[in-house]
Write a protein that binds this DNA or RNA. Structure first.
Lengths: 119, 119
DNA sequence: TGACAACATGCGGTTATGCGGTTATCAGAT
DNA sequence: ATCTGATAACCGCATAACCGCATGTTGTCA
């Protein structure tokens, strides 16, 4: 059951939990968005995202200067099921809903400024 | 989501995972049983069981010399749901089934000797 | 090419975690 | 009361995780 222990270890960090939660509610997010919504530092955001990347939970896509991340688990795979269970656990927390709200707000205020980026 | 991170942290250890799994398949187990099935040391078994005890996952019951542990989550509680999800994740692993088998075998061979204990 | 923006990473420090080994406690038997 | 076996608490060590800071890398634009 080493694999499962490793799985839970990857979820045993509040920052990573929040990142996954945000990504579950959006197709794609760039590092600066996650920084903004979570109010964390660039180094911290980037490091945890790479952590998830190396575990195969997320994939990256370069768009000019921005690096976008998205969930990358194959539909129907065990990881996909585990992610759904995670969503079930997190979704019952009001804090999670508030986080979603803050994300929408952040993305909206970002969209207002001229054309695209406001990081 | 600090609470959830803490939850996963408590599951991020293979020994604790196996202990929970064993307890899910049996009303009650004493420390020496868990030691025997998992092939671990007394100190290690006891420490992780106390860890789970302080988190509220298990309760203890003294029976003379032996200390018995059992799952203690209230039916219908969030913890109960989380435990069911955990069972779902672990149950799909053949290794988990093998562990159950070893437990049955251990308990059977223990029952053979005279009346009760053979730790 | 040079300046700048977004992101990644190496490094050092701090803290948390797991483990083995030892000691203390507790309940029952003599 | 004392002795014994089962379990719990403690200690010290090694390792791993997380963090901030500074620096490196990559891409854009003038």
């Amino acid at each position: 059951m080493k694999k499962e222990a490793q799985l839970f270890k990857s979820l045993a960090d509040e920052t990573r939990l929040k990142m996954l939660w945000l990504l579950m509610g959006r197709e794609e997010l760039c590092v600066c968005d996650i920084m903004g919504v979570l109010g964390t530092t660039q180094s911290k955001a980037s490091r945890h995202l790479r952590y998830l990347y190396h575990l195969g939970w997320v994939s990256d896509r370069r768009d000019g200067v921005w690096m976008n991340y998205r969930l990358s688990v194959a539909p129907g795979s065990p990881e996909d099921k585990q992610l759904k269970l995670l969503a079930e656990i997190l979704g019952s927390r009001p804090e999670a809903q508030a986080l979603r709200g803050r994300m929408e707000q952040w993305l909206a205020s970002k969209g207002q400024s001229k054309d695209a980026a406001a990081c």
